[in-house]
């Protein structure tokens, strides 16, 4: 297992970028997936409901 500095750098420079792109696409798909719209709408309004007691 001879990991030298160059290997790490090459790995960081290549896979780091793929990781970033994959993650960005994943997040965008999740955020804009049509069936998620309802739950997001519910979530954003939920905090404005009555919140005096647990379980309300």
């Amino acid at each position: 297992m001879g990991f030298d500095h160059q290997t790490f750098v090459a790995f960081a420079k290549s896979w780091g970028l793929f990781y970033l792109i994959a993650l960005a696409i994943g997040v965008l798909i999740y955020a804009f997936w049509p069936s998620n719209r309802k739950r997001f709408d519910r979530a954003k309004k939920s905090i404005l409901d009555k919140d005096d007691r647990p379980g309300d």
């Binding site: 990991f3 030298d4 500095h5 790490f8 750098v9 790995f11 960081a12 896979w15 780091g16 990781y19 970033l20 993650l23």
Partner: peptide
């Protein structure tokens, strides 16, 4: 993981 990818090379940075 994101952080590690960047940080990992620094554990061998003494080589540079």
């Amino acid at each position: 993981i994101g952080g590690f990818v960047e940080i990992a090379p620094l554990f061998t940075i003494q080589e540079t």
